[in-house]
Design a protein around this nucleic acid. Structure first.
Lengths: 168, 168
DNA sequence: CCGAAATCCTTTAGGCTTCAAGGATCATGG
DNA sequence: CCATGATCCTTGAAGCCTAAAGGATTTCGG
């Protein structure tokens, strides 16, 4: 409100160097880019397969694990909470796409695996999904793609480092 | 099912060039990168301010519009549905961070604006948010930042073009 | 052996998000 | 004027997601 406050806010940013504002721009652009693609993929999954991205990701995890996974495994791989997995699994089982099986060695646990119908359905969805992504990213040159891949890898590593430092 | 079908599926991918799989990798990396940052920011907003990203974004929109915005405006700017805005606005109003005001010229509409408390609260959150982003992205060199910004811009334009073509 | 702690999964409450439907108001063409 | 259609916002149903608490089982130290 007062002039002093106003100046302080600005100088605080200036002292922190030019990176502050640039980083915000970079993050907002990264976010909008990811959201744009994600929203389109969600839309197409809904329109063409009457499903959702979490369901698709769930089936993708099981597809890669022929022997099945426990809810805990899926929770860790999808980076979501256990309660979330319980709900998704209930609906997918209800639709006959996955099945539950008791684990002999541990009566607390259960393994989830694709049913034949689930495997078939995921194959259809997966092929379309791959085409969509190629279509959406098709505008980039091979050079740009490679550069972007490398930069994103560096970004991710940097972010992970920052999180584990700060989180310690 | 039949051998022919199987071959067709594979050749279809091959004909599309090596970009298919690469694009998928690129998309997954972009997504994991964005989600990593977003999850950390959501976590900090919750822990330190007991709030959420949608609420923060909502206040940010109002902060930039001193004269207030209608739910429709916010819906468009945040790229979410109107019903979503209704619910967020109800909770933010309940907490005294925003206020509703009738519009004289149009009795269907209403303008939402920050209360003084809302403006104060957002200032706190916004400053912290900016620091967090700088901290998380701080590992990147100036060169990488600039390159990434440019590549993401190209990506976004390409995706938008692909969507508007396909969506026509 | 046995009790405490850890692990596994589920449940519950609450917030976020969408789609679809509905009520109120405005604008327009007849 | 007024009926029709458009626009604005809200509501309702359903799915996604989290944090926190709870029940069942396993593990492990004593």
């Amino acid at each position: 409100m007062t002039p002093d406050t106003h100046v302080d806010a600005e100088t605080a940013l200036d002292h922190a160097g030019p990176g502050h504002k640039d980083d915000l721009r970079l993050w907002l652009r990264l976010l909008s880019c990811a959201r744009l693609i994600e929203a389109e993929i969600r839309r197409r999954l809904r329109v063409r397969f009457d499903t959702t991205l979490p369901r698709f990701d769930f089936l993708a995890q099981l597809e890669r694990a022929p022997d099945g996974l426990t809810p805990g495994d899926i929770s860790r791989r999808m980076m979501v909470t256990g309660g979330n997995v319980t709900g998704l699994a209930a609906r997918l089982e209800e639709e006959g796409l996955i099945e539950r099986r008791a684990v002999r060695e541990d009566r607390r646990a259960v393994t989830l695996r694709l049913t034949p119908a689930g495997r078939r359905e995921f194959a259809r969805q997966s092929a379309a999904h791959e085409e969509w992504v190629a279509e959406l990213l098709g505008g980039l040159s091979a050079t740009d793609r490679a550069a972007l891949l490398r930069l994103l890898d560096r970004t991710r590593r940097g972010v992970r480092a920052a999180i584990s430092e700060g989180g310690a």
